[in-house]
Design a binder for these strands. Structure first.
Lengths: 352, 352
DNA sequence: TTGTACGCGTTATCAT
DNA sequence: ATGATAACGCGTACAA
């Protein structure tokens, strides 16, 4: 059933080495011979066996991106940037979805390492997982995407999440809000921690007490978590209920928006909402969503570039930390002045 | 640098065969010996070489899903169903994004075949591509997802798109619409063709002329295509402008919604919109979107089930065509009676 | 162009 | 239960 180079060689009446040359150094083979070999390949339906090739080469020509959550458009956009860069470099990129679950992340890491991929891009559930260190030590190039690690032995691309948090809450404070909720979790997640820290920073910078940041923790970062958080907030007594919510990502914010409206809250009059990521769906939400924009495709391209650089430079590679700046996009969900559905031009706000 | 079974054997003071037994038949090894070997593996950082293992085994333990468009949540939800089924069967699933481009699809198909994956799931750009036939003949199990093929030599899972089209346009006709546009493309795409055919069917069943279905072709199936289609429709003279649009998917519909509103059209009063897929974001759109729901995760699980069945049953496998029924979810974008933002309960409509 | 050693884990055989 | 050893799978690269 399986057709090997040997079969091709017999069929074409040449030696095994010649078939290999046709595959890898076609210019070393006389045109007539080459054509005979290629014809034999077509006739027999020869398909190169990557395992055998890799076994010899030591490494595959494939990279993997382990996504935090494939159902979040933010990560598919990041992946799309990577794909573009990988394709340009002739590397195939496989996408793996850890779905925020450490076991799945672990399983994919093992698979990719066992497959001797040339590099792994990952948005880890837990960036401090010792497994990541082990893999680096054993020689697999690894780039951390949309997270950072404290130590310097890592390439990473990230966005300044603390700044993002400051932008978001700074904007809400400017809008006159004094009781602001932060929705996100689990708290161990780097982005959650940093975005929350930025929020807290903006609050104390404005002379407010830390207690004015109402924590509404969530189990994960999906739409469902926003729905349940909305119920908890809507259930608070009006006198102490936050007048604004800063959500750790847009999925949570969209869930929050949907459920708060269903529960009779007016957005932004009763509750202003700010999301994070500025995924495409944020602009077309029931009330267009104010959000902190991250350069998604760029993030992906930068990550791919880093891993390719690490491959080229080998041992004497300098680890690089690329940090992008986020940008606040103001829309109707946080701003009375743009709340009319007819004049929904987003505005960009800078941190003063 | 690279640690092989041989190194492990030396370190543990056992023979090579024993190490192999620990890896593949742990019950054949005395507990004490097993632990010594496992400790040696940990100490040395041994990582099994998949290439070598596959080379011997003939096949890998991996499947791939080639997605039509990873930025469309419909496909990530399908993928999520597959992941669940694959995980349960101990198979890893790699996601590949063809991004609607035939070259990329082709490249990924080759990669996967060369990697001797145990099966390929694919939502093809062109289901009639001869490459698919060749791969089947050469022995790679293949399941077509969200598409069908005319011949019977294929496993496929799909949703009855013609029924979906009938449901959508039947609903608009019931709402009193008589000039209805169909937005989608390219026309060669199976779903586009079938959904359009269903639309046409509903129209002629109602005694209308085929010409009353206004074709607004699009280049692809993304949000951007909806934006430009909205401009073309808004630019038509009011007297002949369609009063309703049926979009071939929700991304187009969301783009359509966003741009039409920006251009001053009221939804649904000036223009009713119906989408397709019922992705999660459809419900939280600026005007909640009426859409034809497909059982996304189920579709993925069924596809994974089929490919696993084909593996088990080997040569005497009966190809199966699983077809699901779509369901119309009525929301404000097509229905005055639910247009108030406070009472946005979706209704389910059946085809009479 | 050809012949052949090589990479590495798996499996089987014979022996202990 | 374990040891020692060799054949195997298949594409690659290099010396001849």
């Amino acid at each position: 059933m399986a057709v090997s180079v040997k079969d091709v060689a017999v069929r074409a009446g040449v030696s095994l080495g010649t078939v290999s040359n046709v595959l890898n150094r076609p210019d070393k083979v006389r045109a007539a011979t080459r054509e005979r070999v290629e014809e034999a390949m077509r006739d027999l339906g020869f398909v190169r066996n990557e395992s055998a090739r890799q076994l010899k080469a030591g490494r595959s020509n494939t990279a993997g991106y382990i996504m935090f959550d494939a159902s979040n458009p933010f990560f598919t956009d990041v992946a799309s940037g990577m794909e573009a860069a990988a394709e340009a470099a002739g590397v195939s990129l496989f996408l793996c979805n850890s779905d925020q679950r450490p076991e799945r992340e672990h399983a994919y890491l093992s698979r990719l390492e066992q497959g001797r991929v040339l590099g792994i891009l990952i948005t880890p559930v837990d960036p401090s997982s010792p497994m990541l260190d082990q893999m680096r030590e054993r020689g697999t190039p690894l780039v951390i995407v949309d997270r950072t690690r404290d130590d310097d032995d890592w390439c990473s691309v990230a966005v300044d999440d603390e700044l993002g948090g400051r932008l978001a809450v700074g904007h809400l404070l400017e809008g006159g809000h004094r009781r602001i909720a932060f929705v996100g979790g689990p708290a161990v997640l780097g982005q959650v921690r940093d975005r929350r820290a930025g929020a807290w920073q903006a609050l104390t910078d404005a002379g407010l007490a830390a207690a004015d940041l109402v924590d509404v923790p969530s189990d994960a970062m999906g739409v469902a978590d926003g729905l349940s958080a909305a119920e908890r907030i809507a259930g608070m007594p009006r006198a102490t209920r936050p007048t604004a919510v800063f959500c750790a990502n847009d999925l949570i914010a969209l869930g929050m928006l949907q459920r708060s409206m269903a529960l009779g809250l007016r957005i932004p009059d009763d509750l202003a909402i700010v999301g994070y990521d500025d995924i495409d769906f944020a602009a077309s939400a029931a009330v267009p969503l104010t959000s902190v924009r991250q350069p998604r495709e760029q993030l992906g391209r930068a990550a791919a570039r880093l891993i390719l650089a690490e491959l080229d430079e080998g041992a004497r590679h300098q680890h690089e930390h690329v940090t992008f700046q986020p940008e606040l996009i103001v829309r109707a969900s946080s701003d009375f002045t743009v709340a009319s559905p007819r004049s929904r031009k987003p505005r960009r706000a800078a941190l003063t």
